[in-house]
Amino acid sequence: MSVLPLIFTAGWASGINAYAVVFLLGLFGRIGWAGDVPPGLQRTDVLIAAGALFLIEAVADKIPFLDSFWDAVHTVVRPASGAVVSALIAGQDDSLPTMFAAAVGGTTALLSHLVKAGTRMAVNTSPEPVTNIAMSTVEDLSVGAVITLAVFFPVLAAAIAALLLAIGLWLLYLCATRIRRYLHRRRERRATRTLGARPAE
C-alpha cells in the first residue's frame, strides 16, 4: 500500500506542530506500532530533542503575540520538517519517489502553517490568553489524534487532515480583514519604536 496518505497527514500536522509529529512518529516506530517510520526518527537523541522542543512550543504557542513571533520563526522550519519527514517515510517504501514525497509533505505543511499563523494573527487583534490557550490546546490534541489515527488508518487520517486543511483555508479567507489589522498594528508599533529610538535633534 502507498505511504502517500501517511505523508500527506504528516505534512499537514508538521505545519501545525512539527516537533510533535517527529516525536510521535518516532515513539510509535520505537514501540513497534508503526512499520513505516524511518529509523532516524526513532533514535533516542531525536526523541529527546523533539520532546523538549515540543514542550517549549506548548508554552510559547499559548501566549498572545509570542505565539505569532514563534510562528514567524517557524515559517521555514515547519515546511522543511514536513518535507524531510515525508522524504524519510518515502525512503522506507518504493511506492513513491522521494522528491515527490518531499514536495507533497512540504507543500501541505506550508499551507497548514499559513492557516495556523494567519488565524493566530486574527485572534491577536483582541489579545487575551484564554482564546490562545484554547486554540493551541485544540491544535496539539488534533495533531496527536490525527497522527495516531494515521498509524492505524492512514487513509481515514488523510481524509480528516484534508478536511481540516480545507476548513482552515476557508477560515483564513474569512479572517483576512483581522489579519490585515494585526499586520497594520505591528507596523505601527515598529514605527513608534523606531521614532522613539532616534536621538533628539
Rank of each mutant, 00 (worst) to 15 (best):
A176R: 12
T148D: 11
S81K: 08
V146F: 09
L4S: 08
L174V: 13
V151C: 11
S126E: 15
S136R: 04
A122R: 02
H113P: 07
L6M: 13
A176L: 12
T131V: 13
C175R: 15
A150T: 06
V85H: 05
T119G: 08
G196L: 06
A83W: 00
A10R: 12
G91D: 00
G118Y: 02
G15S: 10
G11H: 05
T44W: 14
D93W: 02
R180Y: 12
I160H: 06
S14R: 03
D71K: 02
A158L: 05
A49N: 06
S81A: 15
E139G: 08
A101I: 01
G40W: 09
L195I: 11
L88V: 02
I16S: 11
K62M: 03
A87D: 01
A87R: 02
P129K: 09
N17Q: 09
D94R: 15
N17A: 10
T192C: 12
E128W: 09
R186P: 03
T148M: 15
G32E: 01
T98F: 13
T98V: 15
G11K: 08
S126F: 14
P129G: 11
V130A: 14
R178D: 09
D71S: 02
V59N: 05
L111N: 05
V123L: 12
V155L: 10
G144W: 14
N124H: 02
T119H: 13
V22K: 03
G35Q: 01
A90Y: 01
K62R: 05
W33Y: 14
S68D: 12
L156N: 05
V73Q: 05
Q92G: 07
R187D: 10
I16Q: 03
D71G: 02
D93N: 08
A50N: 05
G11C: 09
P38T: 00
A150H: 05
A72S: 13
T9E: 09
M99F: 15
E128R: 14
D36P: 12
L53Y: 07
F8H: 08
A191L: 13
A150S: 14
A150W: 03
T75Q: 06
V130T: 14
V104Q: 04
W12G: 06
R120Q: 12
L172E: 03
V46I: 12
S126Y: 14
V59E: 06
A50G: 04
P64G: 02
T125L: 01
S86R: 01
H74S: 03
A83V: 01
V77T: 04
M1H: 10
V59S: 02
P38W: 00
L183N: 08
L172Q: 06
A191H: 04
T75L: 14
V115G: 01
Q42G: 04
L114P: 09
E57L: 07
F69I: 09
A200Y: 11
A50K: 07
L164C: 13
L27W: 15
L163W: 10
T75D: 03
V123S: 07
G40T: 09
F65C: 06
V138C: 11
A58C: 10
T75I: 13
F153W: 13
G106R: 05
